[in-house]
């Protein structure tokens, strides 16, 4: 059986909020190392990969592999019934029909329990090759979100160009063009504002802003975001979570102009 207790329901609420507009029905694959999810959007352009390691829970117990097929809109409805600070316990039997979610208020005696009916989801699983990216940009997640939002007003696509000079987000649309260039930046007083660019070779790729803006819904989960690029391969946008856990988004490039 599965029994996983999260100190704060907020984590799962935010994760589900960040991915529910991209993917609808997902298997939460549970085993003794934690809870993993991999799902592609309907058009096979973007992929979500989440890993909540067993250390993120206390306690965590999962005796055998269990796939919990859950509709994210149903899960959202139930998670709305939890306060951010509630303790969340997820329980399921070994061959379950339902998953049980229990919310406990940390400062009162309220205890809420919900069951969600599970679905049989036949999901395509993709092998993601280990990639040494040519460029990795680490920047404040709100800054990345703002750039995506601002450029979305002008164009459907953004070109991301990394050179030793910095990283340039540029777009070209009907009303005109725009570009934001960031250089490496280190702020000792305010390390959350740091911008780090690790580059082994220059990279230039074009991506859909609609998808990038969608990924940015995860901005509330981590203060910084890693944007990993190599020419001719999908982009990786990674939000690190506590206990070595993560929420990653992969996006196929567009054919440049």
């Amino acid at each position: 059986m599965l029994e996983a207790r999260l100190e704060q329901a907020e984590l799962l609420k935010k994760v589900v909020d960040a991915i529910k507009d991209l993917v609808q029905d997902c298997n939460f694959d549970c085993n003794d190392s934690g809870v993993a999810l991999q799902a592609m959007d309907n058009s096979h352009v973007a992929l979500v990969s989440m890993m909540l390691k067993s250390e993120a829970f206390s306690p965590f117990r999962c005796d055998r592999n269990i796939a919990l097929g859950i509709n994210l809109s149903s899960l959202t409805k139930v998670l709305r019934c939890a306060q951010n600070n509630d303790i969340l316990t997820v329980k399921a039997e070994d061959a379950p029909d339902v998953v049980n979610l229990m919310f406990e208020s940390s400062d009162s005696d309220r205890l809420s329990e919900y069951d969600i009916k599970l679905m049989d989801i036949d999901q395509e699983h993709l092998g993601i090759p280990e990639t040494e990216y040519a460029a990795t940009v680490t920047m404040p997640s709100p800054e990345f979100q703002r750039i995506c939002r601002d450029l979305s007003a002008l164009s459907e696509s953004v070109s991301i160009e990394c050179t030793k000079e910095g990283v340039k987000f540029a777009c070209n649309g009907d009303i005109g063009s725009g570009a934001v260039t960031l250089r490496s930046h280190s702020d000792v007083e305010n390390p959350d504002q740091n911008i780090k660019i690790d580059l082994t070779e220059p990279v230039a790729l074009t991506f859909s802003l609609k998808y990038l803006s969608n990924f940015c819904k995860a901005s509330g989960l981590a203060k910084s975001v890693n944007i990993c690029l190599s020419n001719e391969v999908p982009l990786l946008v990674e939000y690190g979570l506590a206990a070595n856990s993560y929420l990653r988004f992969y996006l196929a490039p567009k054919i440049g102009d």
Binding site: M40, S43, H44, V45, A46, L47, E124, H125, L126, G127, I128, P129, E156, T206, S208, K210, V233, P234, Y250, A252, P253, K254, I255, G256
Partner: peptide, 14 residues
């Protein structure tokens, strides 16, 4: 969407 590649050309189904 115009000019959009998919992930299937990059990642293999397992």
């Amino acid at each position: 969407e115009k000019n959009q590649k998919t992930l299937l050309g990059f990642f293999q189904k397992t």
